[in-house]
Computed example of a mutant assay.
Amino acid sequence: MGADTSNKPEFKRSPSHFVDRITADGSEGWPVEAGRYRLIVSRACPWANRAMIARRLLGLESAISLAVADPIQDERSWRFTLDPDGRDPVLGIRFLAEAYYARDPEYTGGISVPAIVDIPSGKLVTNDYLHIPANFATEWRSLHREGAPDLYPEPLRDEIDEISEVIFRDVNNGVYVCGFARTQQTYERAFTALFTRLDALSERLSRQRYLVGDSITVADIALFVTLVRFDAVYHGHFKCNRNKLTEMPVLWAYARDLFQTPGIGDTVDFDHIKRHYYVVHRDINPSGIVPLGPDLSGWLTPHGREELGGRPFGDGTPPGPPPEAERIPAQW
């Protein structure tokens, strides 16, 4: 997450400052190499969740290790208080900021996840949250598991990019514009754009199982990470309350379909999600009280989307279970 939530009328998402790519040929100075890099995430963050899902579906767990930050930040940035002694066991750092400053000691911007860190040097490589999933799908192909799906198929990239752009603008970012709006006009404009876009996506998904083509792509991952947080956080906390997700039948079924797909729902930690948003955003929720609801058990109910056809993994196969250290405790 990277955002400016200061007292301004308009919410502005901070752009990624470090946009280096890790490439198969090493042309940008960072070659794909198994075991060299560490993916830093918060399970609360939708942008980090995108990277986690792509990593799981493609079977990159052994190629790029995972560090999970505490969902509760402090003024020093994302912290590794979930690990023994409060240090990441691989990088040896207490705060993600340390990797940012190792890369650029003069850096004064936000400290965001997902972040990929070069283990030998301890330096941040990239925090380019929008493009990490597609980069995993293309540049890391030599390290994909056998049977990995094609999440960014070349013939469909223009369409994937087009729909991903409007999802980012109106949905992924739109919920934040609603939540952090300082004027009624700003809020109402973002609210209207959000639900207009969700209605259009619902219409599209009433006719096809996935957003583009007949299998899961990075576009579906982009939409899912907002939908899965919608009722737990965005509906109440960010005032995105025209409807709950559970009251939008097509999108609710679509989201359940993806949640029940191996490699997607097993990356979602509702406890981390709720604690982060409700505790950290004291300007929105001064009490820091985390609501007990909503009932989340409906995520495992039948969705019926198989009737639309499509194959979740295309010509590929499902990923195996997550590594033991990455499994999320039962949530209901």
Rank of each mutant, 00 (worst) to 15 (best):
V113K: 03
V290A: 03
E324I: 14
W78C: 06
S297V: 08
L308S: 07
R157C: 10
W140L: 10
D74R: 02
V250D: 02
R242D: 10
I289R: 13
K8P: 00
H276N: 14
I328T: 13
V68D: 06
V225P: 09
K12P: 00
P46Y: 06
D214K: 08
P329V: 12
A3D: 08
R207A: 15
R282V: 06
R169F: 03
T261A: 08
G293S: 09
R305S: 09
G92H: 02
S14M: 07
I119N: 01
W140H: 08
P105Y: 00
V212Q: 12
Y37C: 11
G314R: 05
N135L: 12
D170G: 01
T301K: 14
K239Q: 14
I40Y: 04
D70M: 02
G304Y: 03
Y278P: 03
L39I: 10
G310R: 12
G310I: 13
E98F: 02
V113H: 03
L245V: 09
A255M: 12
G86Q: 09
H272E: 11
P46F: 04
L296Y: 04
F191C: 04
G59E: 05
H131R: 15
V90S: 03
F80E: 06
G309R: 07
D158V: 08
E139D: 14
R43I: 05
W252P: 02
I64L: 11
S112A: 11
G86F: 03
F95H: 15
L82R: 11
G109W: 00
D220Y: 10
Y152E: 09
T217N: 11
L292K: 15
R43C: 05
Y101E: 09
D104T: 12
S287W: 02
L57C: 03
C45F: 05
I40S: 12
A325N: 13
S142Y: 00
T23L: 10
A97S: 11
R242N: 04
A67S: 15
D170W: 03
A330C: 09
S77K: 04
T186S: 15
E188T: 13
R94N: 08
V41K: 01
I167C: 04
A44R: 10
H237Y: 06
H235M: 00
P249Q: 13
G92C: 05
L198R: 02
R103A: 12
K244D: 01
E154S: 13
A181Y: 05
Y210R: 11
I40L: 14
A219Q: 08
Y210K: 07
R169T: 13
G147P: 09
T126G: 02
G304L: 07
R38C: 00
D4A: 06
Y101V: 08
E306N: 10
K274G: 01
D170N: 15
A67P: 10
T186R: 15
P312L: 14
P291W: 01
C240K: 03
F238W: 02
A51G: 05
R189K: 14
S16Q: 00
D158L: 14
F191N: 12
L296E: 12
P84N: 01
V175I: 08
A102D: 07
V212A: 09
A200F: 04
V177H: 12
P120A: 11
Y129P: 01
V117G: 06
G298F: 08
S65L: 02
W47N: 11
L251V: 01
P294M: 07
F191T: 01
